[in-house]
């Protein structure tokens, strides 16, 4: 219940395209320095957003050997396109959009089928080995979710992005984002219940 209230509170707080002015000013100063050729500023920009990019790429791309290179390519793209960034959103949202597109293109190149808006969540549980730790078990389940579900969960829970921002990053309507979040969480909750059975949680 508390978690539900927490989610409701976040949804209400972040119900619109809300961009903090302080963050915007910081971003503007940073971007302006990078555009003036200050590579130390770009180093700072990478440091500030590398966690976000690594979360997104790490969640979508399974091949360990491809992940770092993809993250590097994302920041190279950011460097190339920074002059076109018009501050209509937070810098982190714009970078996340590039990272998402890059990762999805990579999956397509690897011939991994991505349905545009999958309605069904099918998890082949036979691929999951028995694990004593419920969190490890849930992590493995998350790995088996369709990419769109994984990215929505990551952006919402790890990056604290709101529905509008997730929609902007992924190109999904806000309603779909809410729906995916709800269904993925519900599925994980059901699986956790089933996995633990009637065992009392401590």
């Amino acid at each position: 219940m508390l978690q539900g209230i927490n989610l409701f509170f976040r949804a209400a707080t972040f119900s619109g395209p809300h961009v903090s002015n302080d963050l915007m000013t910081d971003d503007k100063a940073l971007v302006s320095r990078v555009l003036d050729g200050d590579m130390t500023a770009f180093r700072g920009l990478i440091k500030k957003h590398e966690r976000l990019v690594s979360h997104m790429v790490g969640r979508l791309v399974k091949q360990e050997e491809d992940r770092e290179e993809l993250c590097q390519d994302v920041f190279m793209k950011v460097y190339e396109k920074l002059g076109e960034f018009a501050f209509q959103s937070q810098l982190s949202t714009w970078i996340a959009t590039i990272a998402y597109r890059h990762a999805i293109n990579h999956l397509r190149k690897k011939k991994i089928v991505i349905t545009d808006f999958p309605e069904e969540i099918a998890i082949p549980e036979e691929n999951i080995a028995e694990d004593q730790d419920i969190e490890n078990y849930l992590q493995k389940l998350i790995e088996l979710l369709p990419p769109q579900y994984k990215i929505v969960l990551t952006l919402y829970h790890m990056e604290q992005k709101n529905y509008a921002e997730i929609g902007e990053i992924t190109g999904m309507p806000e309603g779909t984002v809410k729906n995916y979040l709800f269904r993925a969480r519900q599925l994980l909750k059901d699986k956790a219940k089933k996995y633990l059975g009637n065992e009392e949680l401590t």
Binding site: G58, C71, E135, I142, K189, L201
Partner: peptide
């Protein structure tokens, strides 16, 4: 409690980390 378990799993840091000299 189930909600909390799910949230903890979702908020747990991933094992994949970029090297410290990534930038």
């Amino acid at each position: 409690k189930f909600e909390e378990v799910v949230s903890n799993a979702l908020e747990r840091e991933r094992e994949f980390e970029l090297p410290h000299d990534f930038a």
